[in-house]
């Protein structure tokens, strides 16, 4: 293990003699082999869901040994997925939930981050420290009371109940505040001298300058919302409010008849595609955002 690791970082050491060159090529070949192996391991489940979703149910069930290709591709499974279960409804719900939650959260965190970054008031540092300490509180701990609260407010099976607890994120307030603080304070002072109101300054200057960060935060939040499972599961038992994660679980346990795997895979493909497209468009933003934020989904 140790020597294997060593060779990876050892490419900086190069020699121009012939045998060293040969060794270098062999080493590179091994590296690529290793990387290709893992790339296949990552891609295989995606390939398999696409493949299976194109097989007809009878063809799939007649394969005692699953085949790696499809003889007669069919789109019937997609029709089945969208007609036998309210998949379109789950999609619409998730879309509404994601857009509203992300939109509201952006408003809340922009206001809070602006107050922390530019406005001076008594107790600012203390309050910010309190905010930061909230980051340590695991969701599992507070979700119990939130469940009781939402139930007592009669907000189960409603978008309000789904959305309310996800509207604030201490982490994103922190991230945005750091970004706002990098905008030269002279701009703010100049605007103050000109008599620009704080809110106008925030809207006309801060938000446009901080736009890249805002976009990154919004995308990360969209991904988070799209994949949310636990909270919607606790809060909804009426299918007309299910999000896609709960929908897929429902499909697994009751939909299609348990054995219609191809239709199930068609639903899985349909659910995965929007995020994969989002990822391919915003690849750099997402990866930079995740690595800078250092957060785990």
């Amino acid at each position: 293990m140790a020597t294997e690791q060593a060779t990876f970082s050892g490419t900086a050491v190069s020699d121009f003699s012939d045998s060293a060159k040969k060794r270098r090529i062999v080493r590179q070949a091994f590296l690529y082999l290793f990387l290709v192996f893992w790339a296949l391991a990552v891609l295989f489940p995606f390939y398999w869901m696409l493949l299976t979703s194109l097989k007809s149910q009878s063809a799939y069930n007649s394969e005692v040994q699953p085949k790696f290709y499809v003889d007669e591709p069919t789109f019937d499974n997609y029709k089945e997925a969208f007609s036998a279960v309210p998949l379109a409804r789950y999609f619409a719900n998730t879309l509404i939930f994601t857009l509203v939650t992300t939109g509201l959260m952006m408003v809340v965190i922009i206001l809070a981050a602006f107050a922390f970054a530019r406005l001076s008031f008594r107790g600012r540092n203390l309050l910010f420290t309190l905010f930061l300490s909230l980051m340590m509180i695991p969701n599992e701990l507070v979700i119990i009371t939130n469940y009781v609260t939402i139930t007592n407010l009669n907000l189960r099976n409603s978008f309000t109940g789904l959305i309310l607890p996800s509207i604030t994120s201490v982490f994103y307030i922190y991230l945005l505040k750091e970004n706002f603080e990098q905008i030269p304070e002279e701009l703010y002072k100049a605007a103050k001298v000109d008599g620009t109101s704080d809110f106008k300054y925030l809207r006309r200057v801060m938000i446009p300058i901080a736009r890249p960060t805002l976009v990154t935060i919004a995308i990360l939040k969209v991904i988070e919302c799209w994949n949310l499972y636990v909270w919607p599961r606790l809060i909804t038992d009426d299918k007309s409010y299910y999000l896609v994660s709960n929908g897929i679980q429902e499909i697994r346990e009751h939909g299609f008849g348990r054995d219609n795997i191809p239709a199930m895979m068609a639903a899985v493909v349909a659910i995965s595609v929007p995020l994969v497209i989002l990822f391919l468009i915003f690849r750099n933003k997402i990866m930079a955002g995740v690595s800078r934020g250092g957060i785990k989904a």
Binding site: V42, N227, M264, M265, I271, L275
Partner: peptide, 26 residues
């Protein structure tokens, strides 16, 4: 390599289930 990060773990988990499961048919 980053792809699994953005996918719905519930959905892809189903694929893993299908890959690893043994049924009467298959």
């Amino acid at each position: 390599y980053f792809l699994p990060y953005v996918t719905n773990t519930l959905a892809v988990g189903l694929v893993f289930m299908v890959l690893f499961k043994k049924t009467e048919y298959s």
